[in-house]
Design a protein around this nucleic acid. Structure first.
Lengths: 343, 343
DNA sequence: CAGAGTTGCCAAAAGGATTAGGCGGTGCAA
DNA sequence: TTGCACCGCCTAATCCTTTTGGCAACTCTG
């Protein structure tokens, strides 16, 4: 980090040309005609000195720091954070940018200070990430520069955003059961009023409709989100004489509870009951026996898309209109779905 | 981000003093005597203009960017990453620094380039994090500036590092079983040769020794790390007629498998068998029924300590000796431990 | 009242890069 | 021979802040 690194001046001196010319050559500035021999000598000097431009100075002058702020309410508290950040980071690296990470814990005052700090550092733009699909109201300051909402959007849609395609994902999940022959399909959902609950219910109904199956509200049970809630919901569904043969669970954690409920009732998965989850939380989905078929949340893809979109925004200037992207949720097939039992 | 922010020159102009004096006042430079009235007018002008120093320019001049690089092999791939990063980030924020995040995927060439990129940005220091306790050999470039190893150390101990106290954690886990009256305690461990396996075995033996119980190698079974491995190890231990009454599992994932094995054998937790895990992966530990008693890995604390130690190193200059910190693993009591069954 | 020591403030350099504008030299047409 | 275009390179300004060195003016001291 410290010790004497070569500056552009050193390169100029060694090559015997002016700093300007060195800059022109090293940055391939077009419109400038510079003799091939000059270019060569300059490049040679640069490599000889292992010259690397000082990004601070560069940023100061060019007003472009190649740094992106990543602000999140719960960075890292959820296991999803990882892929979201990773997707963003790799996409940023690909264009020579780095991520400046901040988590606000959801405190608006802190959030505002963090945006300030990013602004002081002249970040090129900001990613404002939520750790689950939410409607957010970010600090006004976010509007001061390029910004993209990650796994979130605002009430009025004023920022470019990317969220999972919940409807499509839920539809695909239920269709996976339908196409395996299931006709009575329960839905263990969450009682929270968040975009995901509404959208996944919509997807559930859409899938039924495609197959011409009437919607039966008694097959939808909303409980608290964790595994214990899933246990209760699934239990009440599975203990009925006309129990569903397939279960669509709002999250993998709920599916976890459903497995426990099935076990308690002496029902085996997928022999007696097929289960599809949502989120693909690998710790659960791969470690359950049998492995859980589930819809993956496209965190990596969303992180990547957000950065790419942000870069576009940075380069096009502030007049680009907001875009709202739905990212598809891929189906991850494991072993929790089979054809329904005869009868 | 963009639009005209006030510079120190604007403040100077408004206050009617020179840029120099403004800088002196705003930075509370000691040794400079400046009239109280002057200070007041300058501060007033600064707040009026909402002046905020440009961190880029500041860093360029002062050679201190208040930015810390966080390089990790698997950032974010594991659910642990979160707390590690969060601890580091919050500790950094507390002293006005920000984290520049990079993950290398373990590729040494990429890692080197990333350290380069950090160096180009003049970071004050670097955190080199591993996502599980490992012996690492970081790129030589890491030695160019202040650095701290997180959840890792080198063969020769050349960098300051912080890792979990595996021995103490394992000892505490086994003592939790011992103090509840268990005398036959199995250990489902991992067959990988990593610091954690050796250290936790040591802790297991130390705890037995404290209670004067001879070590029985047949109670230690090493398998592959995931839940399926845990299932097999636990199954083979629990199907024995002289089965252990307590199980210490190398990870929560293995404990997950052990729960499944116990269920398969008709044994209930904790009535027939008590189980203690390691890692406190909340998705597992809180969602298992009954909740899993386990040792938490002190990721947050390690992240925090690493930053604080790095800052110390930055401020003391390059002559500070390497420190190797062991961070204690707290016991998280849930419901998987009780007294052993009579008999 | 001369000389020494403080006080209060400022001009300019430094930090490393980009870039607008300019200048001398060459070649070619008039 | 003059005029013009263009090439190749450089000077200097700019980005914004911190820091070094120093200059007046004022207060003491003897």
């Amino acid at each position: 980090m410290q010790f004497k690194a070569a500056t552009i001046r050193d390169v100029a001196e060694l090559a015997g040309f002016s700093v300007t010319t060195v800059s022109h050559v090293l940055n391939d500035v077009n419109g400038k005609r510079i003799a091939g021999s000059t270019r060569e000598r300059i490049r040679e000097a640069a490599t000889q000195l292992e010259y690397r431009p000082n990004r601070l100075a560069q940023g100061l002058r060019s007003q472009r720091t190649h740094t992106i702020g990543f602000v999140s309410d719960l960075v890292a508290t959820t296991p999803f954070a990882g892929q979201l950040i990773l997707g963003a980071q790799e996409a940023a690296s690909a264009v020579g940018s780095l991520l400046l990470l901040l988590s606000s814990g959801g405190d608006p005052a802190l959030e505002d200070r963090e945006l300030q700090a990013l602004s002081d550092r002249q970040v090129d733009g900001v990613l404002y990430a939520s750790m689950y699909h939410r409607i957010v109201s970010p600090p006004a300051r976010l509007g001061d520069g390029p910004a993209v909402l990650l796994d979130a959007r605002t009430e009025n849609g004023e920022f470019t955003s990317v969220v999972p395609d919940e409807v499509g994902g839920a539809r695909a999940a239920v269709e996976e059961l339908l196409s395996n022959g299931h006709r009575r399909i329960g839905f263990c959902t969450d009682s929270a009023d968040i975009p995901a609950t509404r959208a996944r219910l919509t997807g559930y109904r859409q899938a039924l409709e495609v197959y011409g199956i009437p919607f039966d509200p008694s097959l939808v049970i909303a409980g608290p989100g964790e595994a214990v809630g899933g246990f209760d919901s699934a239990y009440s569904l599975l203990e009925r004489p006309d129990r569903p043969t397939g279960l669509f669970c709002f999250t993998d954690r709920i599916a976890f509870g459903a497995y426990q409920a099935a076990a308690e009732l002496g029902l085996s998965v997928p022999h007696h009951v097929s289960i599809v989850g949502f989120d693909d939380q690998e710790i659960i989905s791969t470690n359950l026996r049998p492995g859980l078929t589930t819809m993956a949340l496209p965190h990596y893809a969303m992180g990547k898309w957000a950065v790419e979109s942000l870069i576009r925004q940075i380069e096009n200037g502030p007049d680009s209109p907001a875009v709202h992207q739905l990212m598809p949720c891929p189906l991850v097939r494991r072993a929790s779905v089979s054809t329904p039992p005869r009868g």
